[in-house]
Design a protein around this nucleic acid. Structure first.
Lengths: 226, 226
DNA sequence: GTATGCATTAATGTATACGTTGTCAACGAA
DNA sequence: TTCGTTGACAACGTATACATTAATGCATAC
């Protein structure tokens, strides 16, 4: 089927979730800012009801906070928040890597993961940071998918959203992660070889390094409002 | 201030969340059952709006699913689900135990954790399974709190809800966990000694054992609808 | 007897009106 | 001048009416 003939009717509530996410990630709704429900409803061209429902959904996802008579507040992300998030990602992704290694995937099943690594390599060569970030997201998402734990997939997706918000600010403040792809390849190789312990250890150290790099950037730049 | 003079006004939406959680945990809304919004609204003595908002919140928490024109479905829990949940709990709680050990807590700060272990001991002596389960919940909750990662606390709380639902069925089907308190004490001791590696390893093996016990019960009894 | 299509209906999705309540500012008293 | 009080306002929380749409059942044709 082609992507053109989708034809699936989306509810306004679902549309509101998408639009609000876009507005938050694009920075049009900056972290720490307040927005009235009526104002958002007007902006999205619908009534308050679906906007309110979307706000509740996004609140559960940790992107904003609904406060009585003060509108929704887009949650800021502090350096401490990023530490917490990276620690969770480190644990759950490392577990996923280990479990993926135990599944005995063949080369075909691992092809999507290998593709993301190749894409990152191309992006690094052309110094295309945005493309690198997109491929990196796909790598981590695919990794946990291979782990086979649907709850890990869901939690990591939520945390990755927050990382993406922070990265929108930090992406151009740090050196290109030229060496990180060696880690990615090593993880892939460990999974292919069925070496769960190595997959776990390598990914853990990879994530730990990434955490230190990012937290240092956030702290030295006092970017507690991302 | 005394607890009697609380006087905090709760919104109907918040009340609906509480009531629905009670109905789900008590089994009055059995896993797998469907319930119309109108019916629930009538049952809770309020209009559809707050009930609907509560349903969205509980959906985000993984307790139920809202389906168009079919009402909300209380999600069943399969043995596979419990495996996933226990794997997540194992990783995050072990990390929390290790981080708690690094904090250098004194005896006073660890007193609440020690109290839950003492309570479990008393409950085991009197073979009071319900009291043991309640104290065990408090132990795990307090443990992650000491870890200091608020996101881990939140995720573990969500997963613990699911465990509680399953335990309502399995609590009386398994032997009393007479030896588990030795694990709890060992974890506490490792934290007190500041031995992060031991705290991590001990708690991990504790959780792994618990997982195997529970999953085996669920599988042998075909309890895929808990 | 079966299958297809249409009409009915019932439940959600959405809009809107209204009540409730916290906020903010102006005014007055100390 | 400053602090406290009061009042109006405005935004949310809730109820309710309405639109939408999918499921269901019946009738009809093959």
């Amino acid at each position: 089927m082609t992507a053109s003939a989708q034809g699936k009717p989306k509810s306004n509530s679902a549309i509101a979730v998408e639009k609000l996410r876009e507005l938050i990630f694009s920075g049009e709704l900056p972290a720490g800012s307040d927005h009235l429900e009526t104002e958002l409803a007007l902006r999205l061209g619908m009534s308050r009801t679906p906007v309110r429902e979307a706000a509740l959904t996004l609140e559960a996802q940790g992107l904003l906070e609904v406060r009585a008579r003060k509108g929704v507040r887009i949650l800021p992300i502090s350096a401490r928040d990023m530490e917490e998030i990276y620690d969770v990602l480190t644990e759950l992704e490392s577990m996923a890597a280990a479990q993926a290694a135990k599944q005995g995937y063949d080369a075909k099943a691992l092809a999507p993961l290998a593709k993301t690594i190749a894409d990152m390599e191309v992006a690094l060569d052309s110094e295309d940071r945005a493309a690198w970030a997109a491929a990196d997201d796909r790598f981590h998402n695919e990794l946990v998918r291979l782990g086979g734990n649907s709850r890990v997939v869901a939690i990591v997706a939520l945390m990755a959203d927050q990382v993406r918000r922070a990265r929108a600010v930090t992406l151009y403040m740090r050196p290109l992660p030229l060496k990180s792809n060696a880690d990615h390849r090593a993880v892939l190789e460990a999974i292919r070889a069925g070496d769960a312990a190595s997959a776990h250890a390598i990914h853990r150290s990879h994530r730990t390094n990434a955490k230190q790099t990012l937290v240092q950037i956030l702290q030295t730049n006092r970017l507690h409002m991302v």
